[in-house]
Simulated scan of single mutants.
Amino acid sequence: MTLWAGILVAAALCLALKGMGYLVPASVLEAPRPARITDLLAVGLLAALVGVQTFGDGQAIVIDARLPAILVAAGLLWLRQSFLVVVVAAAATAALLRLAGLAA
């Protein structure tokens, strides 16, 4: 199988899976347990994405300026600051650490 054939098969499978989602009755999706599972699944996937983007560099685990930036962001979120303040403070933390040469 060539690369493009594999891509087309994967795209067709994704489209079929999405189409099957429309066949599930609304009563099943609105039940308390599936609703709670989908809410928690979104949180888990977002946490995994943050972890991979923070500590991953290819196949290696890297600790650099991103870790203190994430800690600053987590602290500000815990203090219930606005999202804009959190993003700016985290970016400034990483930038200042890199400028000071303390982190790559």
Rank of each mutant, 00 (worst) to 15 (best):
Met1Asp: 07
Thr2Ile: 14
Thr2Cys: 09
Thr2Met: 11
Ala5Lys: 02
Ile7Gln: 08
Leu8Arg: 05
Ala10Pro: 01
Ala10Met: 12
Ala12Leu: 15
Ala12Lys: 03
Ala12His: 00
Ala12Gly: 15
Leu13Ser: 05
Leu13Asn: 01
Cys14Ile: 10
Leu15Cys: 13
Leu15Val: 12
Ala16Ile: 07
Leu17Thr: 05
Leu17Val: 12
Lys18Asn: 08
Gly19Asn: 05
Gly19Leu: 15
Met20Ser: 11
Gly21Glu: 15
Tyr22Thr: 00
Tyr22Cys: 01
Tyr22Pro: 00
Tyr22Ala: 02
Leu23Arg: 10
Leu23Thr: 04
Val24Asp: 12
Val24Phe: 14
Pro25Phe: 08
Ala26Ser: 10
Ala26Phe: 06
Ala26His: 03
Ala26Met: 09
Ala26Asp: 15
Ser27Val: 07
Ala31Cys: 07
Ala31Lys: 08
Pro32Glu: 06
Pro32Gly: 06
Arg33Thr: 08
Pro34Ile: 00
Ala35Thr: 06
Arg36Asn: 04
Ile37Val: 13
Ile37Trp: 04
Ile37Ser: 11
Thr38Cys: 07
Asp39Ser: 12
Asp39Trp: 05
Leu40Phe: 14
Leu41Gln: 04
Leu41Ala: 15
Ala42Thr: 06
Ala42Trp: 09
Gly44Ile: 09
Gly44Tyr: 06
Leu45Ala: 14
Leu45Phe: 13
Leu45Gly: 13
Leu46Asp: 03
Leu46Met: 14
Leu46Val: 12
Ala48Met: 13
Ala48Asp: 05
Leu49Ile: 10
Val50Gln: 02
Gly51Ala: 09
Val52Tyr: 15
Gln53Tyr: 06
Phe55Glu: 07
Phe55Ser: 06
Phe55Lys: 01
Gly56Thr: 04
Asp57Pro: 00
Asp57His: 07
Asp57Gly: 05
Gly58Met: 08
Gln59Ser: 13
Gln59Leu: 14
Ala60His: 06
Ile61Arg: 02
Val62Trp: 06
Val62Thr: 15
Val62Phe: 12
Ile63Gln: 10
Ile63His: 08
Asp64Pro: 06
Leu67Pro: 03
Leu67Asn: 04
Leu67Cys: 04
Leu67Gly: 03
Pro68Cys: 10
Ala69Val: 10
Ala69Arg: 02
Ile70Tyr: 07
Ile70Thr: 11
Leu71Asp: 03
Ala74Trp: 10
Ala74Phe: 11
Ala74Ile: 08
Gly75Cys: 13
Leu76Pro: 06
Leu76Val: 02
Leu77Pro: 00
Leu77Lys: 03
Trp78Val: 12
Arg80His: 07
Gln81Met: 09
Ser82Met: 05
Ser82Val: 04
Phe83His: 03
Leu84Asn: 08
Leu84Trp: 03
Val85Ile: 11
Val86Gly: 04
Val87Asn: 12
Val87Ala: 15
Val88Tyr: 12
Val88Lys: 09
Ala89Phe: 12
Ala89Lys: 08
Ala89Tyr: 13
Ala90Val: 01
Ala91Thr: 11
Ala91Leu: 12
Ala91Gly: 05
Ala92Val: 11
Ala92Trp: 15
Thr93Cys: 15
Thr93Trp: 14
Thr93Ser: 08
Ala94Phe: 01
Ala94Ser: 04
Ala94His: 03
Ala95Arg: 02
Ala95Pro: 02
Leu96Met: 14
Leu96Ile: 02
Leu96His: 01
Leu97Ile: 07
Leu97Tyr: 03
Arg98Cys: 13
Arg98Thr: 07
Ala100His: 00
Leu102Cys: 00
Leu102Met: 09
Ala104Leu: 10
Ala104Lys: 00
